[in-house]
Design a protein around this nucleic acid. Structure first.
Lengths: 209, 209
DNA sequence: GTCTATATGCTGATAGAC
DNA sequence: GTCTATCAGCATATAGAC
């Protein structure tokens, strides 16, 4: 009985936390950090305001949890470039993964973008350590391929920025893109079209096609 | 005398409004619309809070003025693509103008980006009318060049998105890019390097180099 | 035109009943 | 664990002295 009760409570706990994080993500995107109120998150999560603060103590903690969730998803979704793949396959895989992330989790991309635009106050350490290291490693790999004559001599760091920005754009600027294309929502075809377009353009840009 | 007084007053008026708009831009970038308080704008502009509301009536009006200023600057800075230029020169000019705008007015780019990310609540009509029209015209021009065999058959709308996103990235993600490059600020060389990199990549992508 | 004082409402957070 | 009631502080905006 006691076990059962604990399990049940724990389930409610996990479920509530999940509901809160989803609701909070939406509110942070729509209203910004300051504009999203605990009350608005509670309303969207269909929970009393006090429960939100019971689970996360304060608004700052909710935001941190949302950010961490985003970083984990990206780490998992993008993964590593495999040196054995060679430049062509590596770029193809990278673009593919990044575009699918953008279309499947636009809110995460948006929250991350807003955080960086506003000066990355909550992510300074992440950028200074993890991200800088990540880009350096990847740039080094591209440079090796360039030195081996396997691809055009382009600046590897700017190449990473180009892939990053062009793929992320479909998540962050979703509203503008849909308006320009006169659509209500993205369709399945759009993902494949974007992957094909960006892969073709960037591979040709790198002299790989 | 009366004329002199009017002129003087008018000067103060223009100067104060200018100071307010500059201060407000910074605050909106750093804190978001809701996070930027009239008091914080006043402090940054070095004016009493009541004067801010005397000149602009309410916070919403300040934000609208900042947004309009941004749109005007872009309209002026980017200008039109000239059909007589042909695809190569047109793309070169477009990238050049857009990169320089990003480096010279990052706050404007950031405010615009945040506005779009949050759903473009204050720009819906602009996007639906002006922007959609602008992209259609430019896409049509690229399509003609493609049909004439003057450039590779790439989707013109996605090409515009690519130029837009890759150039804008250096303004919006300034913080992240500087951190990754381990720098405090952009230098003059960076602008030229980015222009060269993006022009080379995208021209090759379009089969123009 | 400039600025002080203040009204009114909403915010994050807590105390404590259930 | 869940929820109601409430507090102290800060926000926008205005009224009105100078």
């Amino acid at each position: 009985m006691a076990v059962n009760q604990t399990k049940k409570s724990s389930n409610i706990r996990v479920q509530s936390q999940q509901k809160i994080l989803i609701a909070a993500s939406t509110e942070f995107v729509l209203q910004g950090y300051k504009g999203a109120t605990v009350q608005s998150i509670a309303d969207r999560a269909e929970l009393p305001k006090a429960n939100i603060l019971y689970y996360f103590k304060n608004k700052e903690n909710i935001y941190q949890a949302v950010l961490e969730h985003t970083l984990e998803m990206w780490d998992q979704g993008i993964g590593d470039l495999d040196p054995a793949d060679g430049p062509k396959l590596a770029i193809e895989k990278f673009i593919d993964a990044k575009v699918r992330l953008s279309f499947n989790h636009p809110e995460s991309s948006k929250i991350y973008a807003m955080e960086i635009i506003q000066g990355a106050q909550h992510l300074k350490e992440f950028a200074r350590t993890y991200l800088r290291q990540w880009v350096r490693e990847k740039a080094k790999l591209f440079q090796q391929w360039i030195d081996n004559g396997e691809m055009q001599d382009v600046d590897p760091v700017h190449l990473i920025f180009l892939i990053w920005s062009s793929t992320q754009h479909y998540a962050d600027f979703e509203t503008q893109i849909l308006t320009i294309m006169n659509r209500a929502d993205y369709e399945d075809d759009d993902v494949e079209n974007v992957i094909k377009f960006l892969t073709d353009m960037i591979l040709r840009g790198c002299g790989l096609k």
